[in-house]
């Protein structure tokens, strides 16, 4: 898919909307930043490449005016889920879809080049070439992609008004999606408990995970900060941090679209998406439900069956 094609669509859409949300170059060559385009001159600066990781659909519910947004396949699930839950007015949104073969995790790239400041980035043939003061390094995108890309089922957006490129099919087996969860479950109970305690202990409660999450609808009225009800204190103990992340995960049960934003934005590198992914794997298993794929669906926690096929009464 060429950036030119994308710009063409942006220019076409611009007159009908207040803003087109896309990406532009950030403070250095590896950081791409969201770009709220208002004019044709802005559109000239738009970019699309494997560094366009951020899920731009997450801005939609906070915008009142008609907006166009550029989405990858994974990001489009956010829009589907918004439609399910009535969080956006579909007629007020123009979706520019991009078929995507995988993006790059900036954290993984930085690690691969020892966190040297990046002087230049080039792409060639499923590879990313990083130039630092220590020289050039070529990395296969498949090796530095976020985990979500490894099992991507929706390379082409599920909903769109314009598609910049030709639709592509997923090549990844559907069973692979929750393999990491199954692998993790092989650890003993104690190991898992210690793992989460250690990880969540790093949390500084900056709430980047919450604010970046497209499905975290409470946002400014988050229960993590209110004193009425007083769910959690402001103390910095493991219990309080764990509680916050449990709240986040449980509120997303059957709603998490697995965009991975929570994990991407965490400045402390905590695998915050793990809990949500686990819940999703259970939603799949219990209700054969995948969030964010069908606008007509109802999130499984918002409904029930009188006879639940897969929930059996537990014996003591």
């Amino acid at each position: 898919m060429s950036t030119e094609k994308l710009k063409e669509i942006i220019l076409k859409v611009l007159p009908d909307v207040d803003t087109v949300i896309g990406w532009q170059e950030g403070f250095d060559k590896i950081h791409i930043t969201p770009f709220f385009m208002k004019s044709p001159e802005d559109a000239e600066k738009a970019v699309w490449n494997s560094l366009c990781v951020q899920n731009l659909a997450a801005y939609l519910p906070s915008l009142k005016k008609k907006t166009a947004v550029i989405v990858k396949g994974c990001d489009s699930r956010t829009i589907v889920q918004y439609m399910q839950e009535g969080l956006i007015d579909r007629s007020n949104v123009v979706i520019i879809g991009i078929p995507c073969t995988g993006v790059v995790s900036v954290k993984k790239v930085l690690k691969a080049v020892d966190y040297q400041p990046i002087e230049d980035v080039k792409f060639s043939d499923e590879k990313i070439i990083i130039k630092t003061s220590k020289g050039e390094k070529t990395l296969a995108i498949a090796d530095v992609c976020p985990d979500k890309c490894k099992t991507c089922q929706y390379p082409t957006p599920i909903v769109y008004d314009h598609l910049a490129g030709d639709p592509i099919e997923s090549t990844k087996p559907a069973e692979s999606v929750y393999e990491d969860i199954k692998e993790f479950e092989k650890k003993s109970l104690e190991e898992r408990r210690d793992y989460f305690k250690n990880e969540f202990d790093k949390c500084i409660r900056c709430y980047a995970c919450r604010n970046a999450c497209p499905m975290c609808v409470c946002q400014d009225s988050c229960i993590a900060e209110t004193r009425d009800p007083h769910w959690i204190t402001q103390k910095l103990s493991s219990e309080e941090k764990m509680m916050f992340h449990m709240i986040h995960a449980v509120h997303l049960a059957g709603r998490c679209v697995e965009c991975g934003e929570c994990e991407r934005v965490c400045p402390m590198d905590i695998p915050v998406a793990k809990l949500k992914k686990k819940i999703n794997s259970e939603m799949k298993e219990l209700f054969d439900y995948v969030p964010g794929v069908n606008p007509e669906d109802k999130p499984p926690m918002y409904t029930f069956n009188v006879e639940e096929a897969k929930i059996k009464e537990h014996k003591l």
């Binding site: 803003t19 969201p34 500084i204 604010n211 204190t233």
Partner: peptide, 25 residues
């Protein structure tokens, strides 16, 4: 700042940000 997501990462990591809250528990 349209792209800002209103989280506290910048301020909490900032060596010069010092604003605080006082609460009773």
């Amino acid at each position: 700042v349209s792209k800002c997501i209103s989280c506290g990462a910048c301020t909490y990591l900032c060596p010069t940000c010092y604003c605080f809250n006082i609460t009773d528990e």
